[in-house]
Design a protein around this nucleic acid. Structure first.
Ligand SMILES: [Zn+2]
Ligand SMILES: [Zn+2]
Ligand SMILES: [Zn+2]
Ligand SMILES: [Zn+2]
Lengths: 142, 142
DNA sequence: CATAAATTGCGACAAAGTTGCAAAAATAAT
DNA sequence: ATTATTTTTGCAACTTTGTCGCAATTTATG
């Protein structure tokens, strides 16, 4: 299903209106890389800051987007129902975020871990940080 | 080694001064639960906000503290050299953060994963979110 | 203890995020 | 299709969070 159609469906399911602003926010998030809130606001430049914030808050409640800690600031990306489920590796030097393809064993592992702590697992996040292949020669310390 | 002594050592190793403010910030972070920046500022109430921010920034550069995404806001906690390495499960309903004891198999797995992507892994984070044992009966939806 | 270097507090500022409310748009009803 | 009802939007004012320059204080050095 097309992401925009899927958005429409999720919004209606929850009694929320389908609006131009919300569609624009979704569209802005469809790129490859996760975005900071600031970047997102810029990409939605016909839409008021407050509206972007309100849309993101709604999307987070409806599990349409998720926020992840990428180095210093948090970033936003579409969540599993819209993208494939995946994790990230962030380069500490150049800041690039590389998506990692899903690993069923790892997923199973996390599930068992949650069970061991009597947690009903709703979502999870793994963030690796280090140096990407390109930056490894460049950097000595850090 | 006592955390305060360890702080002194790390600071000196990097040519940084050992000051009352920095010791106070470390002390405030020694409690069990990770703290938001706001909470930390409150617990350091003789110290200026700007100084707390500057200390945290320094501590982050020296890998004394790490920030983690706990639900909505980020939180700070002492990093692996000061606490045992561990991960977290956050309850979506009551917000409590439960530390998970280290699992060597999982750690090895992450290491291999990074290698597969040509990443030199420097650190990593796993955040589980869901409902804790206490909140499971309370909540139907969410 | 005196000197040099680094850190702190302060105040002013910039950026990020929130809120109330009237106008506009979306849905529901006729 | 029009109108009525409900929800959302933009705006502007505001709070919170985070940053910066600089003089006063503290820390390190000898
Ligand atoms: Zn890189
Ligand atoms: Zn996963
Ligand atoms: Zn709970
Ligand atoms: Zn680990």
């Amino acid at each position: 299903m097309q992401p925009s159609a899927q958005l429409e469906q999720v919004l209606k399911q929850h009694g929320q209106s389908v609006t131009a602003a919300r569609q624009a926010v979704l569209a802005a998030l469809q790129g490859q890389e996760p975005l900071t809130m600031g970047e997102l606001v810029i990409r939605c430049n016909d839409i008021d800051r407050a509206t972007v914030y309100r849309s993101v808050a709604l999307f987070e409640r409806l599990s349409i987007v998720q926020r992840l800690q990428a180095g210093w600031k948090y970033k936003l990306e579409l969540s599993d129902a819209f993208h494939e489920h995946h994790h990230h590796a962030t380069c500490l030097h150049c800041g690039q975020v590389v998506p990692l393809s899903e690993d069923p064993k790892l997923e199973a592992y996390l599930h068992d871990l949650a069970v061991a702590y009597n947690f009903t697992l709703r979502k999870h996040q793994i963030e690796l940080s280090g140096l990407c292949a390109t930056c490894q020669p460049t950097v000595g310390s850090l």
